[in-house]
């Protein structure tokens, strides 16, 4: 690991003034040797330090956000919305009673990644903004497209954990487990700019496909700080569920995951649906065909199966990851039924 300066920011504005750039910017170079001039932000530091230990990121200065109290709170809005500060840890979210009651899929998603130790440190902001875990991306010896290199190694290489959808140019899967749940629940995010102004966007629109920009997973602008995630008030009849399957049950990444949100009316007909797949594509992947298959239909095992089939119908698996399709299909069907059958 290289030598670096360490600054602890006490307030968001102070952090913004230090001129941080995104880690994607700090990493992307033509030569393959990471630059050493950047100032970057650290939340829990799990991903940041991983990149530094591998020699993939060599920043000049690290700005620690952990000492900013306003980013570490969960607040209920008067309208029934919920504001989750970007530094709230995954463990805190998983254990929060209101989250568990209203936004079940998020509580489930936040309670499963990695291990308890990691969840006690990992923040929701860092989780959404962490860099991909494609093993070529994480290798100093593979200067791939996403790092500014000339090739993607995954298509003709070892791609068992890679994307089965929308992988034009780069087949990494978006690493965040909380993202599918948050997108399904209609979360918005609040970003603070260097000049002190704020911008609010739907979380879903933050993520960039490789075609939009192969070097960045999201549209965070240099100097922008993610302040909070805002969950909308839950309408009556809305319920959610998250399912995941890894190769192991602890300290592992999912090979497939899905968050489902449905709004059922009183006879039990589905009026709104969100089906978002994780570990599926370079962005949290909305399975539109599955959503349309659900809407207007009563919840039943048969309808859930149809929707699940629709969810994987357009998939384009690589040489080594076709197995993900039956897994997705099973998880989507299960998540729909679990969501619908909640009280």
């Amino acid at each position: 690991m290289n030598r670096f300066e360490w600054t602890s920011a006490g307030a968001v504005a102070a952090a913004a003034r230090l001129g941080p750039v995104t880690v994607a910017e700090a990493m992307a170079t033509q030569s393959g040797a990471p630059g050493t001039a950047a100032t970057v932000l650290k939340a829990g530091g799990i991903d940041l330090l991983d990149l530094m230990k591998e020699g993939l990121l060599t920043p000049r200065r690290i700005v620690n956000l952990r000492g900013i109290p306003e980013l570490g709170r969960i607040l209920e809005g008067a309208d029934g919305s919920l504001r989750i500060g970007s530094l709230v840890t995954l463990a805190q979210i998983a254990e929060h009673p209101l989250v568990a009651r209203r936004y079940r899929a998020l509580a489930q998603a936040a309670g499963l990644p990695a291990s308890p130790q990691i969840r006690n440190v990992a923040t929701i902001g860092g989780n959404l903004l962490q860099r991909p875990h494609c093993w070529y991306f994480r290798s100093l010896h593979h200067h791939c497209l996403r790092k500014g290199g000339a090739t993607c190694f995954a298509f003709s290489g070892e791609n068992r954990y890679h994307a089965v959808f929308a992988h034009e140019g780069c087949a990494m899967v978006h690493p965040s487990t909380t993202a599918p749940a948050l997108v399904a629940l209609g979360a918005r995010i609040e970003l603070l700019r260097r000049d002190g102004s704020r911008r609010m966007v739907a979380l879903e629109s933050l993520f960039l496909t490789p075609e939009e920009d192969i070097r960045r997973e999201n549209d965070l602008k240099p100097g922008e700080i993610l302040a909070a995630i805002i969950l909308p008030p839950m309408k009556p009849g809305v319920r959610s569920w998250y399912e995941r399957q890894g190769e192991q049950d602890s300290f592992d990444w999912p090979v497939a995951e899905v968050a489902v949100v449905v709004k059922l009316d009183s006879p039990g007909i589905c009026r709104e649906a969100a089906v978002i797949l994780g570990a599926a594509a370079p962005v949290p992947y909305r399975a539109k065909a599955a959503e349309s298959a659900l809407i207007g239909k009563p919840s039943s095992a048969g309808n859930a199966r149809d929707a699940a089939r629709a969810a994987v119908a357009g998939a384009d698996p690589l040489s080594g990851n076709g197995y993900k399709l039956p897994v997705f299909e099973a998880l989507v069907a299960r998540a729909i039924l679990h969501a619908a059958n909640q009280g």
Binding site: W135, Y136, S139, H141, H142, F153, S156, G157, E158
Partner: peptide, 12 residues
Amino acid sequence: RVLDRNTGHVLN
């Protein structure tokens, strides 16, 4: 152990 047949590197 996953060995990349194209580059000869261990990926994990």
